[in-house]
Design a protein around this nucleic acid. Structure first.
Lengths: 151, 151
DNA sequence: ATACGTGCAAAATGTTTGCGGCTCA
DNA sequence: TGAGCCGCAAACATTTTGCACGTAT
């Protein structure tokens, strides 16, 4: 698959926001553009710092508010990797780019992975249980190559 | 709750603590006993309140300290279901009683489930990726039967 | 012009740390 | 007796809320 998905999410998000009646504000756009460039999930504070580093100063409260809006519109997913910080990442329509996470318990590195077999197993569980499942997340904890005990 | 494993975990935990050089304190025992009776994960504050309700007053800091000790000995697992609270549950030796969670995003109900197929898929991913995986957790979000939109 | 968007500061959690006193071994 | 255990209170860090001002429509 080519990199046909570089700036498309930001545009999709903007369209969806506009059609839902949101106005266009500078801070929200900045957060959206930043999120679009990320490979994996980022915490609110990482987002704030990254924007600040890029010369764009945004209020912390605004970052939280924007992330919350995007989350309720289904434009981002919130994930918890176990360190008590909420992280957010772009969610593509139709489940494209859907993935899960590997977390290094030593250095904190976060990496995405995908697995069809795993998705199938989850779908099967969802069908079997009494809950009406509409989302799921899987986190694998361990040590990344750099932090492996042996090396 | 007439399960075959009712008080065994508490005893196991106490033995393991003793053999690691820990002394036996009232507060720690209370937390362990409480955890043993739970079907699913509980937050530090739920634990504190449950103990208080049972007439056993324990300092909040102590609850956190005990949970942290138990976690580093591998006697409990810490899970995050996405609401920013750390929850803990008894972990049996050898991976017995290993399970994952269904979370109702409406009422917050938490239920355990198990699936061999899912475990196999995860083990396969763990083998394939460069990370040295030693733990994993899966959370399915949705609505429980009571909160289902249609019913 | 008006309602929404934004930043700042204060408040509200959840969690950790410091410390003095108690208790088990 | 002495090292660990415990409870209280203060410190911390993240997230939420209140409010005044700016800005898109």
């Amino acid at each position: 698959m080519a990199k046909a998905d570089a700036p498309v999410w930001a545009q999709y998000a903007h369209e969806r926001l506009a059609s839902t009646g949101f106005r266009r504000g500078g801070a929200r756009s900045a957060v959206i553009e930043l999120l679009d460039g990320q490979e994996c999930a980022r915490s609110a504070i990482e987002i704030e710092d990254a924007l600040k580093a890029g010369g764009r100063r945004v209020g912390r409260a605004t970052v939280y508010r924007v992330l919350d809006e995007l989350d309720s519109l289904g434009l981002v997913t919130r994930i918890d990797i176990g360190d008590g910080l909420a992280r957010y990442e772009a969610m593509y329509p139709g489940g494209a780019q859907h993935h899960h996470h590997l977390v290094c318990d030593d250095c904190g590195k976060l990496m995405p992975f995908t697995d069809d077999e795993l998705e199938r197993a989850i779908r099967r569980v969802a069908r079997r249980e009494a809950f009406a499942i509409n989302d799921h997340d899987v986190t694998l904890h361990g040590f990344c190559p750099d932090c492996a005990p042996s090396s």
